[in-house]
Write a protein that binds this DNA or RNA. Sequence first.
DNA 1: TAGATTGTTAATCGATTAACAATC
DNA 2: TAGATTGTTAATCGATTAACAATC
Lengths: 227, 227
Amino acid sequence: MSLRIAPSRARDEVPSATVERLPVYLHALDRLRASGIATVSSADLAERSGVTSAKLRKDLSHLGSFGTRGVGYDVEFLHRSIADWLGVHEPLGVVIVGLGNLGHALATYRGFAPGGFRIVGLVDVDPDVVGTDVPCGEHSLPVRPLADLAEVAASAQIGVIATPGSAAQDACDRLVAAGITHILSFAPRFLAVPSGVQVRAIDLGVELQILAFRQRQAAHEPGAVSA
Amino acid sequence: MSLRIAPSRARDEVPSATVERLPVYLHALDRLRASGIATVSSADLAERSGVTSAKLRKDLSHLGSFGTRGVGYDVEFLHRSIADWLGVHEPLGVVIVGLGNLGHALATYRGFAPGGFRIVGLVDVDPDVVGTDVPCGEHSLPVRPLADLAEVAASAQIGVIATPGSAAQDACDRLVAAGITHILSFAPRFLAVPSGVQVRAIDLGVELQILAFRQRQAAHEPGAVSA
DNA sequence: TAGATTGTTAATCGATTAACAATC
DNA sequence: TAGATTGTTAATCGATTAACAATC
């Protein structure tokens, strides 16, 4: 088991639902590794990831074959295999637009470096914020004015929008103009972008509303469990 | 058109994929209403929501029939219909655990009130933070110590975890012990909960990693578009 | 060998899409 | 009536699940 070669498979063939779960498995493997656990079964890893073991095995089967029947998965090997497949090896540059509370939370978010990211720029419109230094993991970066966005974005591959909703579309347009094609948005608003640009939007209000619906539904159901 | 009655349908029958998109439509309708636009077609509303018109019409068809053939949807009526169906009328109480940057961002998030929420409590472990007042929309709330969580949670139906990952499971356990059954978690870690409790987890690192994969994939593709 | 667990198969389930009849 | 747009149908597509043969 000392010399194992991970079978490669075209990334295009892997279902997107599987791709979206791989980072979750990777994270769970991170923690197993930190605990010094060397081997894990699909049932155990699945439970730690919040999925069923069948789904986990099916997901992994799209990338290749990483386990040993009757034994399970070597934590180190599986971790490296998924990390390699995702391409975590060389970090992508991230620029954050908007440094209010949310932007600060994102900038100081631990766990970006292990995920294959490097924050390379911080931008805001507020003159009171521009110029201040924000700690980003090990290093620290100055907040630069919005006018410098194009310059800052030159060394970034991913843009993060953490502005108020009213400023989000403008921030988005500027990122796109600067050549950024992949954007993570926390603005409570749908962003219009040209084709070829991908936006992944997380709306806190929407997330809460989905949860709230389920809460109300559960509360009105006959077999509702009360504390 | 002055007296229209929305046909009701059992909430259980509606696909979960549809339920997750309804808040997005509601939000788009909010903005249309604010713009003074009275009527909208499925094609227009779909574009403003980032979906196809076929999907939008199919989604709405699960709730009932709200439009007029040849004309479109009455913005006011459709908004009210969806809001009623989701049950936005009487607000749910929200308690936020952890008031670092992320917790503050959530507490000051505008757009909770229109979504049918009322923040009823803020809790943190840090003695420096406990006792300070945090503005939540129109009112303002004091941060209370973790020991008071059970008391604070008594008037809440939803819990939000915005603590560091290391404290998340403990926060979760305490919320569950206090009778909270629906939790929104921003901790980078899978939370174990008893059955009957629902956790909706948003992991910033995971979201970024999914986006990063797509960026790397697009960059390596032959027909990649470069700015 | 006996027990355990993977990787894969085949069936089921749910979501999306395109097309169009109904109807304003 | 002619043009526009909904609500619904049926076909397609993708994801999940259960079961088990392969194999350590």
